[in-house]
Structures are given as structure tokens and as C-alpha cells.
């Protein structure tokens, strides 16, 4: 056996307990989602099932109004990400390229906002949204998610921007580019990997967020996925666990797959950015 193969086998062996821990909930979720209703609560619990029912997904889709919640989640996650990036990119650029008064204080402020849990602020945010007349409006989530993510995205983008040599922009100016042209033709193309990484981070945050969504949104038409799935469990006499699990599978698995696939390209992109 080659030493390389041996090495990777050893690594897999070491990592396998971790994989079991991570994959176990997905497995339970999946088998529960595809079994018939009357096999949900057999004792002792079994992995197997008498019938593989894709139909659960279709039933769930209609019954829980899944499509609308999916759309709401996408709306909130995409827009909050776009907003956070649109504001963070100029802020991060200024932090990495210019000296200005209060720069250190601004950085510390960004860090400090990260030390406060969003839950502490929920009440205040709710009252703010009441004052703005935005309760029960998805845009309130867009605003708050973007705001919560910005400290991180600015920080992250700034540290990457600082690795892009200033010389490149200076060379572009000397070549005859305006500030704007050097930004769009030289700087931003080189910053794409960082923007993608922070964008994904921000998207996933919005996608998974629960507490704020539960607080701000009153009507079930505007529920995002986590709240919609939660509403299938909480305050009911009878919980349709196979539908809940089918919904959870649909909400988590596609996103997880897409992003674990994207990650490969992102890491490669990060490495390419370092070209001297």
C-alpha cells in the first residue's frame, strides 16, 4: 500500500466518528420523511420501513404551504445578502486603502457589535420595526439580517482586500484609468472570491435565522422556512412528523449540497487571488 493511501485511510478513520455525528440527524430526518405515517412511532425504533413514500414530500408541499415559505426564505436571504455586500464592499475598501480619522475606533466598534447576541436586541428591534411600520413585512428581515451580517462581512472583505497589492490599482491609474475604472476592471474582479465567500456566509445566516423571523412576522403567508416548519410542530395537538421531516430535508439538503460543492471552487479562487 502506498504511504499516501495509508495516510488518507488513517485520516478517514480518525474523522469517521465526526462524520457519524454530523450525518446521524440527516439520516433520521430522511428515513422519517419517507416512511408511512403509521410507522412513525414504532418501538423499538427501526431504520427500515415497509414502503418508500416519496408522496410524503408532495403532501407536505401542499399542506404546509412550502412553496411560499421557500420563496420568502429566498427573498429574505438573497436581498439581505445583496444589501450587506453592497454596503460592505465600499466600507471594506475604504478600511483597507485609506487612512482616516477614527479608523481604529470604527474597527473596534465592528468587533464589539459581534460580541452582542442578536437575541438581546430582539425586543428593541421589534419596537424599531413597529415605529417604522414594518412589522409583518419581509423587508424588516432583509434590513436586520443585512445589518447583523455587515460587521462580519466588512471585516472579512477588508482582510482579503488588504492582500490585493495596491500596486495593481496604481499601475492602472498610470495606464490611464480613473478610480472608478480601476475599481471595476482591476480591483473587483480580483476580489470576487472574497465576495463569494462572504456572500455565502451571509446567505446561510439569513436562511437559517429563526428568532427574528419568528418575532417580526405575524401572518403565516410571510413565514420563512424555519418558522414555517416550526409552526408545524408548536402548539398543535397532532404533529405530522413525516411532513415536518420532509420539509426539513427540503430546506437543508439542497443548500448544503450546493454550498459544499461551491466551496471547492472558492478555496481554489482564494488561492488564485494570491498571484503575485
Amino acid at each position: 500500500m502506498s504511504s499516501k493511501l495509508k495516510k488518507s485511510l488513517i485520516y478517514w478513520a480518525i474523522l469517521s466518528p465526526l462524520m457519524v455525528v454530523i450525518l446521524f440527524p440527516f439520516a433520521v430526518m430522511f428515513v422519517t420523511a419517507v416512511r408511512p405515517r403509521d410507522e412513525l412511532f414504532v418501538f423499538p425504533p427501526r431504520w427500515g420501513f415497509s414502503e418508500f413514500r416519496w408522496g410524503n414530500f408532495a403532501e407536505m408541499w401542499v399542506k404546509t404551504n412550502f412553496g411560499e415559505a421557500l420563496f420568502n426564505s429566498l427573498y429574505v436571504s438573497v436581498l439581505s445578502t445583496a444589501l450587506a455586500l453592497a454596503l460592505s464592499i465600499p466600507a471594506a475598501y475604504a478600511l483597507s486603502r485609506y487612512r482616516f480619522r477614527g479608523k481604529g475606533a470604527y474597527r473596534t466598534f465592528l468587533l464589539m457589535t459581534q460580541m452582542m447576541s442578536p437575541i438581546v436586541l430582539v425586543l428593541g428591534l421589534f419596537r424599531l420595526m413597529v415605529a417604522l411600520g414594518m412589522v409583518n413585512n419581509l423587508n424588516s428581515l432583509v434590513l436586520t439580517y443585512a445589518a447583523f451580517n455587515m460587521a462580519f462581512t466588512i471585516w472579512m472583505l477588508q482582510s482579503y482586500f488588504s492582500t490585493i497589492p495596491r500596486d495593481l490599482e496604481e499601475a492602472a491609474w498610470i495606464d490611464g484609468a480613473s478610480h472608478f475604472t480601476s475599481l471595476t476592471r482591476i480591483f473587483l474582479p480580483l476580489a470576487v472570491p472574497a465576495m463569494a465567500v462572504t456572500g455565502i456566509f451571509s446567505f446561510i445566516n439569513g436562511w437559517n435565522e429563526f428568532v427574528l423571523a419568528l418575532t417580526m412576522i405575524r401572518s403565516s403567508d410571510d413565514f420563512t422556512l424555519p418558522v414555517q416548519i416550526y409552526s408545524q410542530v408548536a402548539g398543535r395537538f397532532q404533529v405530522e412528523w413525516h411532513h415536518v421531516m420532509a420539509g426539513t430535508v427540503l430546506a437543508t439538503v439542497p443548500v448544503a449540497i450546493v454550498f459544499s460543492w461551491l466551496q471547492k471552487y472558492l478555496i481554489r479562487g482564494m488561492a488564485l487571488g494570491a498571484v503575485k
Binding site: 495593481l168 496604481e170 498571484v275
Partner: peptide, 11 residues
């Protein structure tokens, strides 16, 4: 101008 580390546009 020719820069010390060339400053070629990598992309």
C-alpha cells in the same frame, strides 16, 4: 512606470 514587483494584472 515599471514597479518593483511588476504589478501585472493577474486576471
Amino acid at each position: 512606470m515599471v514597479f518593483q514587483n511588476y504589478a501585472l494584472y493577474p486576471h
